[in-house]
Design a protein around this nucleic acid. Structure first.
Lengths: 144, 144
DNA sequence: CTACAGGTTGGAGTGTGGTCCAAGGTCAAG
DNA sequence: CTTGACCTTGGACCACACTCCAACCTGTAG
């Protein structure tokens, strides 16, 4: 059984984060001492690891909570988790496409600009393009 | 000269956004009527277009302000803007790599999981991987 | 006994890019 | 003169994932 500081250090997060996760209903301490100190056992640490790694895979904390809820349900199947993973992967790919569109738009501007390298700003094709009816190739409906 | 509502509609943003940009020092109205109404001319609209498109290219509002500051400076060169564009493109590519790493990590989990499709959750390799000392291939130092 | 490192709570603040609201002023049409 | 659409201001609020703070309590070492 580890105190909050020990548990936090063990998994390289802050004690404040642990308290925050608790407030968000993600990770309750295994128990409390008489004085109210939080204590975490190895199950709690495994759960914390799950939270951390799911975050690293792009899940928000509320999505992590959903995943944890699935694990808490009777008769939950592997496939239930897998579906969430697939959905998240689609979201990631959507975002990647949006970023790539931005990057491509910039590339084009950067290349065109290379020609007039030392020209004054009035001739800058980047500025001109951004001021005019220019648009990023799009794909970037930011909604989900 | 357009009122705030007309200008906003013309460029498909909200009037609140225009007031927000003004507060952020990005776009001042050309002038005010006696009653205090904001009025925008075509130069202001061009500036607003610049803001919108720069945002679509991934620049934050404070970065857009930097770009606008460059345009306001005497003797600014095209290259000054170009440098910012290149820097932003690098940031975008960095972020894309981070997202791809997440996506790849998920892919692997999803594939492994396919095998035990209908198994109970205890056997789920996704859960197991996230609980254990698993790590996203990384590249994902989120800082800049 | 005292210091000091830890723990507790509730609440406020961070940055981003806005949105929404109330209370009031303005302007053109009927 | 009234109605309705528009404008003004200041300030509150949203998500997100924390971080930091004050004021206080606990536990251990010397």
């Amino acid at each position: 059984m580890l105190t909050i500081g020990e548990a936090a250090q063990r998994l390289a997060v802050s004690a404040d984060s642990l308290r925050y996760y608790e407030k968000q209903g993600l990770l309750a301490p295994t128990e409390r001492t008489g004085a109210g100190y939080r204590l975490y056992d190895s199950d709690a640490l495994r759960r914390l690891n799950f939270i951390k790694h799911a975050q690293q895979c792009g899940f928000s904390l509320s999505e992590v909570r959903e995943l944890l809820d699935i694990q808490g349900r009777e008769g939950a199947r592997c496939e239930d988790v897998r579906r969430h993973a697939i959905e998240k992967k689609l979201q990631l790919e959507h975002k990647i496409r949006a970023l790539r569109a931005m990057s491509a738009a910039l590339s084009e501007l950067i290349d065109v600009c290379l020609a007039q390298n030392d020209k004054p700003l009035e001739a800058c094709p980047i500025v001109a393009a951004l001021e005019a009816g220019f648009a990023v190739p799009s794909q970037s409906e930011e909604s989900s």
